[in-house]
């Protein structure tokens, strides 16, 4: 539990360790003292022989091949309707984990995430199957995202057109696609759904220059429909362009939360050292 107090003139937002809430705006995501712990199997530090496994059992060491990673360590913030929040930090700092926890896909170990509406991740890769044709994958991906059969049928042509794939490729298994073609189709499927709270992980806007422009415009469009947007990216320019607020995460701890210019400047200074 994190205590908050209402915004007053004397307390500048980013200087205070306490969360300051703005009572005049409508909150859409509240992250309250969030801790996320991953459990990883088969990470075994020691030799994986039967003898060592037996020894571990004899010594009653629980869950031998399991390691835990404390990925998010007590993060709190409030996001309001209309916010576009960029999340930055070095590799492995917990950005994607934070995103998944906000989406409710990774259960918190402690603390909680409160949202208005269902936040969802823009990304459908995991639902697609390499051995299936593009056509079947479009249907599968749409259904996996929760679209009804009718909506899927209605969106089908739109997805094909947006992906820019030639008709003969739609009938081929996805494993035969080039990486750019695959990425285009995945993005097209993912973007077919509208979201309450949109979470965009980096590396989505791949493909050639023309498709990058197209997908950027599409994200912008989705952003307008959504109540709030979270954007994880390494490209700081993209963040500065599209976000009105930036959160800097490092080693699972929130280092800074404020307007893009200030936070990005501090982040660049810290990483350039």
């Amino acid at each position: 539990m994190v205590d908050v107090k209402e915004k007053t003139e004397s307390v500048p937002a980013e200087a205070s360790p306490q969360i300051v809430i703005d009572p005049t705006r409508e909150p859409i995501v509240v992250v309250d003292g969030l801790h996320v712990v991953y459990r990883i199997y088969g990470a075994g530090g020691d030799k994986g022989t039967a003898a060592t496994a037996l020894l571990r059992m004899v010594r009653r060491r629980n869950r031998p091949q399991m390691k835990t990673v404390h990925a998010i360590k007590g993060v709190s913030f409030v996001v309001y309707r209309g916010d576009a929040v960029g999340i930055i930090g070095s590799n492995g700092s917990g950005k994607s984990t934070l995103l998944r926890a906000i989406a409710g896909l990774l259960p918190p170990e402690r603390g909680a995430v409160y949202t208005d509406g269902q936040p969802s991740l823009l990304g459908v890769n995991a639902a697609l199957m390499r051995d299936l044709t593009g056509e079947r994958n479009i249907v599968l991906g749409c259904l996996a995202q929760g679209l009804s059969l009718e909506e899927t049928k209605a969106k089908y042509q739109e997805i094909v057109d947006f992906s820019g794939l030639k008709p003969e490729f739609i009938q081929l298994p996805m494993r035969t696609y080039s990486s750019g073609m695959g990425a285009r189709l995945r993005f097209a499927i993912a973007a077919a759904k509208t979201h309450d709270v949109l979470l965009v992980d980096e590396a989505l806007a791949t493909g050639d220059a023309r498709f990058k422009r197209k997908s950027k415009a599409k994200i912008e469009e989705l952003r307008k429909d959504a109540g709030a947007v979270f954007l994880v990216a390494h490209n700081l320019e993209v963040i500065e362009e599209t976000c009105n607020r930036v959160i800097w995460v490092e080693e699972g701890v929130m280092r800074m939360d404020g307007d893009p210019k200030t936070v990005i400047a501090a982040y660049t200074e810290a990483t350039d050292k």
Binding site: M1, V30, V78, A101, Y114
Partner: peptide, 18 residues
């Protein structure tokens, strides 16, 4: 006031809840 109270008072619900 805690963040949790604030969130529930403003009608937000827990995102990882069953």
């Amino acid at each position: 006031m805690s963040l949790a109270e604030f969130a529930t008072r403003r009608g937000l619900s827990q995102s990882a809840a069953r």
